[in-house]
Design a protein around this nucleic acid. Sequence first.
DNA 1: GGGCGGATTACCT
DNA 2: GGTAATCCGCCCA
Length: 204
Amino acid sequence: MKLVDSSFFEVGAVEMAKLLLGKYLRHNTSKGLLLARITETEAYAGITDRGSHAYAGRRTSRNEAMYAAPGTIYVYRCYGIHNMLNVVCGALNDPQAVLIRSVEPVEGIEQMWANRVKCKNIGQLTTGPGRVCEAMAIDLGLNRASFLDGQLQLLEEGVPKLGMELIAGPRVGIGYAGADAMLPYRFYQKNEKWVSKPLRVIYP
DNA sequence: GGGCGGATTACCT
DNA sequence: GGTAATCCGCCCA
């Protein structure tokens, strides 16, 4: 597998959310290598998206990473407890990002179990954005770093898989976003089992 | 300076 | 299905 290059990130969030499915997230930690396949994503599509931290051009210390170069890592803390991992994409000063909601563990699974202190069920090891960060030891120290040259990386297989059938539906937990809460910006592959919350309503 | 609440999870009934 | 946990960022004064 090879690292994706910088141009990979130069697309809007909705396209990026689809392209990230099946890619690999690798974290080189002091306790060993963690590798996982991305299985569920959500797009946060810039300043017109009421669900986004950057809606209406909001720019604060928390979301500053969204305004950085495509390929930047955006990690923030939610509910005072959980970290959320996002991939910044689009263009410089165009705050687009994709939330990684679930992954399939591939390597370093023992370490992931150790990181997920209270987890007993394999199906809950890495499904959910907070769980992904806990399992893969992703914290605020990675915020504003880059996927292109750091210890957290994105990889792809030499030969892309074809014919993925995608499921799309509304994003989770953004009821405040009004009409934008209905947008089909959450994605996973058909028959994917590493998913946080299966969709009831499926958009064709 | 102060109050509110969240891109969630785990554990309870 | 309901709710506690837990804290910084955000917004208003």
